[in-house]
């Protein structure tokens, strides 16, 4: 359980972080993606193709050319979707920004904050 001072310091940090351009852009891109049924359909289609290819691989079979072509078409459709591409860019930017922020915590703390909090499976 966090004491009051640490709890408040954490909330202050988190609320400031939420307004960082990279984080705000990610939130905005995520909202746009969630609200775009066309983009959601493209992603679902891509996931279906990927799952089919994985099943084939696990059973030791090779995909047919039509299956490969269909997967490539779904990939191209993803690349042509502005909402999805914007979300991918926003994701990449926020994932580049958060380690910078974590290093600042580390510098102040004197311990590797990121290593401490990272999930053990990662």
């Amino acid at each position: 359980m966090l004491d009051q001072a640490l709890h408040q310091a954490t909330l202050d940090f988190a609320r400031t972080l939420r307004h960082a351009p990279a984080v705000a852009a990610y939130e905005s891109a995520t909202e746009a993606l969630d609200a775009d049924p066309g983009a959601q359909a493209l992603l679902a289609d891509m996931r279906e193709h990927q799952a089919a290819l994985v099943r084939l691989q696990q059973s030791g079979e090779s995909p047919t050319q039509p299956q490969i072509d269909a997967f490539r078409r779904s990939q191209e459709a993803i690349r042509g979707c502005a909402t999805i591409m914007a979300h991918l860019r926003a994701t990449a930017e926020v994932k580049a920004f958060l380690p910078v922020v974590a290093r600042r915590i580390t510098a102040s703390l004197g311990f590797d904050y990121a290593q401490i909090v990272a999930p053990k499976s990662c």
Binding site: D3, T16, R104, S108
Partner: peptide, 24 residues
């Protein structure tokens, strides 16, 4: 504005690190 906000974030991150150092 972006740079100012990022500067604020980094300052707040430093403050959090300091707060962690001060915990029992």
């Amino acid at each position: 504005v972006s740079r100012a906000t990022e500067t604020e974030v980094l300052l707040a991150a430093g403050t959090l690190g300091t707060a962690l150092r001060e915990t029992p």
